[in-house]
Amino acid sequence: MFEARLTSAATLKKVLEAVKELLNEASFDCSDSGIQLQAMDNSHVSLVSLTLRSDGFDKYRCDRSLTMGMNLASMSKILKCANNDDTVTIKAQDDADTVTFVFESKKQEKISDYEMKLMNLDQEHLGIPETDFSCVIRMPSVEFARIVRDLAQFGETVLICCTKEGVKFSVSGDVGSANVKLAQTNNFDKEEESVSIEMQEPVSLSFACQYLISFTKATPLSPRVQLSMSSNVPLVVEYEIAELGYIRYYLAPKIED
């Protein structure tokens, strides 16, 4: 028996919004420790890794580990039927071929359930090595989303250069070029608005704007985003999900031909 309950459907809706642009379907691996998802996008350029810890749920029970392959468009249709403040419970029997979502309104006067067929997905799991990154940048997630959206208008590829002084995002294309420089702030009062950089050595890497835009769909999950970079390895864009876990996106850099 698997049962996981969250008092606010809004969180699950946001998680789904954060993955469904990159993935059509995904396997949710459920175990004692929580729910995990790891999947590459269709073109195998990026990787999504989601962890929702069991202790972050209001109720969590997983007698036997199970993998639930879900069509994310179908899951999205179901979650649209929940109000943000509904309690949501995800239920499945051991070896079941369906999963059930139960939505309960705050006053319990409305209870709805939606059963969805599970899919057998032959998904490839990649081993992600532990990396000591040369640069780790932390900034407001809204600021990152804004920069990516603004610059993507002017080119397909953004160059991210990180030094001790700050981080520079640059794009050039047919129209011309654009640069956004963010300095490291010493804003201790407003930690949420600060830009901080931990740097071992400077890094410059190029990435496809289109994927970065997809990653920023996770912005509603967290006020902060963390970018981790080292030369010649994928960028990691991480959003913490308060008291529940995190979503990490890995993106292969673009390399000069």
């Binding site: 590459m40 073109s43 195998h44 350029v45 990026s46 990787l47 490839e124 799991h125 990649l126 081993g127 992600i128 090595p129 590829t157 190029s206 496809a208 390895v233 994928p234 890995y250 993106l251 292969a252 850099p253 673009k254 390399i255 000069e256 031909d257």
Partner: peptide, 14 residues
């Protein structure tokens, strides 16, 4: 001119 490599070039299949 940039080329886009697959994420598979960096992470091996488990």
């Amino acid at each position: 001119k940039h080329i886009q490599k697959s994420i598979r070039n960096y992470f091996k299949t488990k």
